[in-house]
Amino acid sequence: MAKSTDLKSDRKQRSALRARLLSVFTWGTVITSVAGFFTIWYNIHQSAEASPVSSTTASRDAGAHSHRNSSTGSGGDGASSGAQSGGGTEPGSQFGSSGSEESGNYGYGDGYGHHHGSYGDNYGSSGGSGLFDGGGQGSAGISPGNHSDVQSHAS
């Protein structure tokens, strides 16, 4: 029973978040979704030639970083555009990206032929007091209003 209530509450929260997000969409907004993760983007400080974007169905490699046209669909998540080449993408660098988003092997080599594996491999591996452990449960989303209690900025 408690579990059912939790699920209902969770659904309600997600529904509220969706409503909030939808309420702030504008012409320039691009929405994509992959595995329940919605990525939204738009441009600011654009010159007059920045016309409203048009919505198209995304192709697999429609990345957020290079397209002003809207990409809505499973592929256009603005994430990686497919597999990346193995270690040492920069000459002289001791870091090189390897693996791919899809395979879950994204990580960095050390320049000596070793691979440290996925970033994610390190999560949850250090007991209860680790950097990424604890802190409780919370939620966040876009606020429909402009009022803010405090500002977050680089420091």
Binding site: R14, L17, R18, L21, G36, F37, F38, T39, I40, W41, Y42, N43, I44, H45, Q46, A64, H65, G78, A140, G141, I142
Partner: peptide, 13 residues
């Protein structure tokens, strides 16, 4: 936020 003025945000629902 990118240097080109693009604001990208993502939420898990």
């Amino acid at each position: 936020v990118t240097k080109h003025g693009r604001v990208i945000h993502a939420w898990n629902w």
